[in-house]
Nucleic acid binder design. Structure first.
Lengths: 344, 344
DNA sequence: TGTTAGCACTCTCTTATAATGAGTGCTAAA
DNA sequence: TTTAGCACTCATTATAAGAGAGTGCTAACA
């Protein structure tokens, strides 16, 4: 069977209607609301065809039709018109990036908040994936006689810090010296390359403090390992209650449980992906828990290096055109802001 | 009317039953399940009295009775027996504090998780309130030619770091010198005392870099101001769905919305309070949003200085005795751990 | 005088049944 | 090929009837 232009028109009408109403769409509704110049009976026939082709589904015999994931995919790829963001909304976003926030985590967190505010969906964002970033500088900062702070500064200004215990009788100058040694050996390595650093070479420089050296290496490795597991930021978690499909307490609960599984969310966002906006619809998601959600994600970059991903998550009946335009704008705005802050 | 021992017995039976079943308790149930040696008719009379005295409420004429907030208060103050924590649970908690976590935020976060795990309520925790803590050390760590990291280390090992822009042509040695100057002037001040620092005295030491000095002061003040607004950590946010009183989507929603209001939660936890466990029941809470919840909080300390608060929040029909014993144990365990880590 | 059995009454919750209405698929005519 | 007409399906809503839990009151009892 061929998907002629009339079928497409009808499909589009049904999708549009369903996105707005969340109610199964009947032939009469299509005939009345979307004046296609054909009768409901004709539409009925076409709808029957569309169902056979897998674009529509019927909750039960005497209900209207609901778009399938396949239909949404077609819609996203061919049918929808992505309008660029309205001026008001663009201004709203810009405003947030004008209060020079300098802490990266704060930036990402704010981005998530803004996203959920303007889309009314739940938003997710991950901080830069350090594996793609190089180490710039390592510095031990004395805290008191017993502790020092190990600060790792990366090429994109992102840092991790850990408190470590230092042996007695070590002074600030010595810590500076150690910092120098570590920096020298780790500088310009990416986080995934650190295994290649020749530890024995560093070891030789720690003449008498072998024990301290060992604990330092432990902390460093641990810090590197832990840094792989990045923080996930959420915005508008309770927005899900706005959607009629989540009035059911069980569904709402399982959605919110999903949001608590930070590891899973991280996996979803961190999966290697090309630059730009990506839409993942319902069953297209690999994760069982997401089979009736859609996710629209966008990457953000520093210069031309992709650093991380932001996204919104909602029911498959999502306002894709709007979501895509917001995500597109937001990804670019964030990249621009980061590049401006930290340089390319 | 007098609250004689029989009335207390009946009230206790009703509260116990209601805490378990969440169903209004009838006179027959009390007579059958709690063998008090009196008939349901007598109990009925007593219940009628208890209602008149404000300890019981009736959802509707032909339903059983439900304890009022006043009854819970009486229960908490006089009736309930707080058993000390079971060995298993105590071990479970101890285990978490055995993996030497050194980052304070991580500790508090983990504490919240453990709390919600073992109580099945939603838990809240706030990180130490810095206003009660003194500044130990200020250090500028170079990041690249353009940026440096300003690290503030406090007496309890807690730190705040901010990225700041540095003027061109400034090297590491100079940053070290600046760090020294700042440390010298701010050391041993509490965060609320920083206004008393004589800025002009420092200014004199920055001979040629007045502009840098100004931006430094800006960042410092900002950082101090921001540090007043502490992070709130949550655990088990979806636990609320376990309770029949939150099967209603509207109630669940408003509860979850409450949890998103970090400022409000902070306010609740940060309100000055004595050391130890505190129970706040339903309408006793000042916040409108909490009028049908109860909160059990405990403080944690470093040495003998109260640093912050942890708590669990649930329906007024809460297992107070258990909640109190868990919170008591947890607050002490956390204090002990912190003291061990950072000294008194 | 306090306690208890008995009973009518109230009110919610459950279940059964009927009515409504949106929507479909099929048929036959245009 | 399109469309009007109509019988049929099925979820949803409305209505009614019971069932059940619990109370308050009364009167008898120790």
């Amino acid at each position: 069977m061929k998907l002629d232009s009339r079928k497409l028109q009808i499909l589009q009408a049904i999708i549009n209607d369903y996105i707005i109403t969340a109610e199964p769409v009947g032939s009469r509704t299509v005939a009345r609301k979307y004046e296609l110049g054909i009768s409901s009976a004709t539409i009925r026939n076409e709808m029957s065809d569309l169902e056979e082709m897998g674009f529509l589904e019927q909750p039960h015999t005497s209900a209207g039709r609901v778009p399938s994931d396949k239909a949404y995919r077609l819609y996203v790829d061919r049918l929808m018109q992505v309008k660029s963001l309205g001026e008001q909304e663009a201004d709203y976003i810009k405003e947030f990036y004008e209060h020079k926030i300098l802490q990266l985590e704060q930036i990402i967190f704010t981005t998530a908040k803004v996203l959920s505010d303007i889309t009314n969906y739940t938003s997710i964002a991950i901080a830069p994936q350090l594996s793609r970033v190089t180490i710039g500088h390592i510095q031990l900062v004395p805290v008191d006689r017993e502790f020092a702070l190990l600060v790792i500064v990366t090429s994109s200004g992102i840092l991790k810090d850990t408190l470590i215990q230092i042996p007695q009788g070590i002074n600030g100058d010595f810590l500076n010296k150690v910092s120098g040694i570590l920096t020298e050996h780790f500088q310009n390595k990416t986080f995934s390359e650190i295994d290649m650093v020749d530890l024995s070479a560093i070891k030789r420089e720690f003449l008498e403090n072998q024990k301290f050296f060992n604990s330092l290496v432990d902390v460093l490795t641990d810090s590197f390992r832990r840094s792989q597991k990045q923080e996930v930021y959420l915005g508008g978690t309770t927005n899900i209650f706005n959607f009629p499909e989540y009035q059911d307490i069980l569904r709402a609960r399982s959605f919110l449980n999903l949001l608590e599984e930070k590891d899973l969310l991280y996996q979803i966002l961190a999966s290697p992906q090309d630059e730009g906006v990506k839409v993942s619809i319902g069953t297209e998601n690999l994760q069982e828990e997401l089979r009736d959600c859609s996710i629209v994600t966008a990457t953000y970059s520093l210069g031309n290096r992709v650093l991380g991903t932001i996204g919104v998550i909602g029911p498959t009946r999502m306002e894709y055109s709007r979501a895509v335009s917001v995500m597109d704008y937001m990804g670019k705005a964030l990249s621009r802001y980061l590049t401006q802050l930290y340089g390319a």
